[in-house]
Design a protein around this nucleic acid. Structure first.
Lengths: 341, 341
DNA sequence: CTGAAAGCGCTTACAG
DNA sequence: CTGAAAGCGCTTACAG
């Protein structure tokens, strides 16, 4: 009969050897043919591919990872999934990586460096092919683990002047500056900055805000309302109320993101405040719904899908062993003026 | 010197053998001690654990997967990440699985059965420890692949009466019924159902809506406005306008989800329509911001975090080889009445 | 309760 | 351009 001899631990899986046998080549040649390694005769490649088709062979990623000391996994570490910003980045990363056989592994840090370090420890044990992390703010241990691992790594959302560090993003500080300057051109003189979460990128936007107002001689630290709480529409409303109560005279509010700003806009409406008549309101990121608000929200459109795509492209190059021309890619941003300012 | 003999392909990694040597036991015993397999002397377990600490040993998941024919990966297939609903489910799943050493692998199907089948093919090749999928609507090939793999699988968001099929969710149809009944108690008689995407769960809600209105003798198919487009606030506004233009006399709108309903609410405001005076508006899922709307949105609160947690718990049991008492867990839902109805 | 041997399914490094 | 041997780092199955 055709029954194979009883093996001790057979998984019943079709292996590379089966393919090799069917194609009448050695397993090594089959392996090379499959991985598209050059230097295999065209004819043999075809025979192997036919056999793969015929047998329905699927390579075993575990065996591959063990033998090659490299998996197809690419952990992507983001602070939060509840921010649509990062969801967009992830979608784009996944779309760019998947066709190349890489798997994006999503890790959520909740803006906690300790949690990020823990995730990194776990993921690095899996010998990832590459790594995508958000920003530069992490524990020293995490930094060293990444460096020691030798795993190619691209940083998301920010820029750097450090050589040999790869990143794709835009200048958060410039964006903060530009939005503030816009509010100035609208004739506003008492511009508040309202922020939550207070993560590094939010604080960079704050820096841009300060710089712009200082240049205009209008900076007043009392007009900053910073809350470490997580961002939400509800909080945006609460902060707006607090701001108006404690800082009368404010004629514009720059919210550090659209969640907050949408909540602020709705609260203004609830309070019977005219926007932008009495107070101008702006946000950041151009999230879903910002264009639907009443009035529509002025914001900064950030290139999150493009960041996901470009960072994946850069990582793909690094994983191939290439050196990208530019190590810090600036994808810019776009001031989007609508009715609220 | 202490230099180890030159090995041919050493990765420099600390292995289980190193740990075993340091603990003066055999690698097999070390392996068993680490996995908490019972039947290892307490003292040896302690020696092994000490050695692990001392050497900073981290097991190699690839080697483990290859030898045991089972990885620690748990693919979670959801339709979309841009719906906060699924993000909440994922967060909860991840939180429940990670401490047990399992890795949630996020797969996005974009409501496309072909795409889901493709993802399944890839993920199943990785010998996942378990599998979480959304609903029951998939290709026959996908269904068979799951069954043939023998990988424990739990279905999210819906319920079943089929034995041996595991799921955690709630009755989408009942929820649609309850919301419609609520609108009836508010005295509405021309209740429209407005939906987008038209995925299976949305259509189940539609069924509940129909059933309720038929029982009341008020069902009118013309009051259903169904769009296959993806859901968004913008679309909600557009659909509301179309509805009011083409179906005058409507006095309530049941949007199949909160995205749409929020957009509808803002559009109503833009059009100068009083809510709920002229038209009542309700949504589904109680997403962020629904309680901030003007007026606040009546909706159905769905237990998405609980679904994530419970499904992970059920999967954990299945992966341990246990049989959960109940194969279909109903986590219910909660009608949340606010100002818009 | 513990262990020596074999094997999981690939790829690397060496030869020719 | 092709291949036989060895090895990646674990666990399984068999013994005792």
């Amino acid at each position: 009969m055709n029954k194979p001899e009883t093996k001790r631990r057979s998984s019943g899986r079709i292996t590379l050897s089966d393919v090799a046998k069917a194609a009448e080549v050695s397993p090594i040649t089959a392996s090379r043919a499959l991985r598209g390694e050059r230097g295999v005769a065209q004819e043999l490649v075809q025979r192997v591919k036919d056999a793969v088709q015929r047998l329905g062979y699927v390579p075993d990623p575990a065996a591959r990872a063990l033998a090659s000391q490299r998996s197809v996994q690419v952990p992507v570490l983001v602070p939060l999934l509840s921010n649509a910003l990062f969801v967009d980045v992830l979608e784009a990363v996944h779309r760019a990586l998947f066709p190349h056989g890489y798997q994006a592994l999503i890790g959520v840090t909740h803006y906690d460096p300790q949690e990020e370090e823990q995730l990194l420890r776990t993921y690095l044990a899996h010998r990832p092919a590459g790594l995508l992390v958000t920003g530069f703010d992490r524990t020293e241990a995490a930094r060293q683990m990444i460096a020691a691992s030798g795993v190619p790594c691209v940083h998301l959302m920010e820029l750097t002047s450090a050589p040999g560090v790869y990143c794709v993003g835009f200048s958060q500080q410039d964006a903060g500056y530009v939005m503030t300057a816009h509010l100035l051109t609208r004739g506003r003189r008492h511009i508040a900055f309202v922020a939550a979460q207070l993560d590094p990128r939010t604080m960079q936007r704050a820096e841009g805000y300060r710089q712009c107002l200082k240049e205009a001689g209008l900076y007043d630290p009392k007009l900053e309302l910073l809350s470490p709480q997580p961002s939400s529409m509800r909080l945006g409303g609460e902060l707006l109320e607090e701001l108006l109560r404690t800082r009368p005279g404010v004629d514009a509010v720059f919210f550090c993101n659209d969640d907050l700003a949408q909540g602020g806009l709705l609260a203004a409406q609830r309070l019977g405040l005219s926007v932008p008549g009495q107070v101008a309101i702006s946000g950041f990121n151009d999230l879903a719904g910002s264009d639907q608000m009443l009035p529509p929200l002025t914001t900064v459109r950030t290139p999150r899908s493009a960041i996901g795509e470009a960072s994946a492209g850069m990582l793909l190059a690094l994983m191939r062993g290439e050196t990208p021309e530019r190590n810090s890619v600036d994808l810019g941003f776009e001031l989007t003026v609508r009715g609220s300012t």
